[in-house]
Structures are given as structure tokens and as C-alpha cells.
Amino acid sequence: MSPEELAEQLACLEALDLLEPSEGVTLATLTHQKIGLSAFQRDMREVVGQLAWLAPAGDPPDRLRARILAAPLHRRRTAL
């Protein structure tokens, strides 16, 4: 496997939260070395995010919207 393929493979696994710790170290090293890898990692996160649409569609119940928007939202950590 070429270094480029390894970098791609690790970025794909990272996007799926499947990296083993040692692979995470390797990916961090490669990210510093390879121009464009960060953009590739971002692309993979977007692709993986799209997989959410594969879940069988279901509307959240109306009570969930009310529950979330009525939650104690003042508990913010810090102001901007």
C-alpha cells in the first residue's frame, strides 16, 4: 500500500470513528506531512455524514421538539 493509500484509508476509518489508537498517531503524522490530507479528511467526514440519510426515515415525535426547545438553554458554557 502506498503512503497515499494508507493516508486515505486511515482518514476513512477516522471519519467512521474506527481508528485504533496507533493508527490515530500515524494519521496525525501523515496529516502534518501531506498537503491536502486535511481537506481529504474533511471530505470523508462529509461523506460519512451523508450516510445518515440511509437510516429508515422516521419523524421524531412532536414532544421531542417541545422538550428540546423548552430545555434550560441558559446553561451555556461561555459567551462569545
Binding site: 421524531p60 428540546i68 430545555a71
Partner: peptide, 28 residues
């Protein structure tokens, strides 16, 4: 976002109440 997030949580968990809890936590 709520529809795809709820659907994803429900697909993974297979339990509507738990999916609601996850989505609630994510939005907070």
C-alpha cells in the same frame, strides 16, 4: 436536522425513546 438525526439514532438503537434521548442530548 432533527429528522435525519432521529432516524440515525433510531436505526442504531432500535428504540424510539432512546433515540429521543440521544437527539435531545445532541441538540443541547
Amino acid at each position: 436536522f432533527s429528522r435525519p438525526l432521529f432516524s440515525t439514532a433510531l436505526r442504531i438503537l432500535g428504540d424510539s425513546r432512546e433515540a429521543e434521548d440521544v437527539v435531545h442530548d445532541v441538540f443541547l
